[in-house]
Simulated scan of single mutants.
Amino acid sequence: MPERNIEFGKYGARGIKGYEAVARQLDALAGYIATPITARRGLQARLHYLTRTPHARAAARAAGLTVTDRTLRAWAAGTRTPSRKNLAAIERAYRTVRRENVARYLAARLNRDGRGTRVEIHPLNQSQVSRPRQRPVEFRALNVRRWDRIVAAWAAGDDQELDAAWVDLVVDLGSQWGQYEYVTNVGFAA
């Protein structure tokens, strides 16, 4: 694709891929449990979320939590403690199920009946780049009216599709859209 950066950071520029910044913002809007999983309260909250209904248990199994119901009950009761590997599996399953559960709501909230949501794109950090090599990049704002593809890729955890959806969105910035492939931050609220 034209304008894609091949050697980003070669001269000292810093930033992250735009789709990663969008994923971070969507994660913030998803409202995950704030208490860490290593605390008893955080573990209990995640287990309750993953086991409260048969649908939630099925989604947790599909997301990779493959322990028996007896083990889940023992963890919930506090008679047994999950290993680090199982804690990571619980956290992964929780985030996957939470994303699936809030994706439709987030897409509708961000689409706002066709009005869309304003996205602020903060350019990459060029403070470490020598003066002759710096390029003029400025703060940009864009109104995104269709979030369905972005939210679906985020919910599925598909980074390639999320990157493609982000690039398709950034192309609307005009001929300099490649300058916003890497950013310091992408901000939007719903």
Rank of each mutant, 00 (worst) to 15 (best):
R145Q: 12
A77S: 13
Q25W: 02
A89H: 08
I150F: 03
I37D: 04
R95D: 03
R61G: 05
K85S: 15
R135A: 02
K10G: 00
A156Q: 09
R46E: 03
W177Q: 02
P132F: 05
L173D: 06
N86G: 00
L142M: 15
I37N: 00
K17A: 14
A56T: 01
E138G: 09
M1A: 10
R99C: 06
G9C: 12
V186T: 11
D158K: 04
T38K: 05
I37Q: 02
R149G: 09
Y94G: 02
W154L: 06
T96S: 13
E91I: 01
L142H: 11
R14D: 04
V129I: 13
R135K: 12
L110V: 08
R118I: 05
V137R: 09
A89F: 03
S83K: 09
F139V: 11
Q44I: 07
R4Y: 11
T184P: 03
L162I: 10
E20T: 12
Y32R: 07
D69P: 00
A89E: 12
A76L: 14
L65S: 01
F188I: 11
A153N: 07
E7C: 05
V183A: 06
W147T: 12
P123E: 05
A88S: 12
D168R: 15
E20S: 10
R146T: 10
T79W: 09
A164W: 06
A103E: 07
Q176Y: 10
V22K: 00
N185Y: 13
D168P: 00
W154D: 06
E181V: 14
G42W: 05
V119P: 02
N143L: 11
A190V: 15
R40K: 08
M1L: 12
H55M: 06
A103I: 12
R109S: 05
D27R: 08
Q134C: 03
F188Y: 10
R61P: 03
A56Y: 02
T117R: 02
G174W: 15
E120P: 01
V183K: 07
N111K: 03
I6T: 12
G187Q: 13
A156V: 01
R41D: 07
S130V: 12
A107W: 05
K10I: 15
R115M: 14
E7V: 06
D163F: 04
K85Y: 13
R140P: 02
R41T: 10
I121Q: 02
D113W: 13
H55D: 08
A155R: 09
A88D: 15
K10Q: 13
D158S: 05
R98P: 01
L162E: 01
K17R: 14
I90Q: 01
M1V: 12
Y49P: 02
T71W: 00
G31N: 09
A141Q: 15
A152V: 08
A152I: 11
D159R: 15
G15N: 08
H55E: 14
P36G: 04
A34N: 12
Q176F: 05
D163R: 14
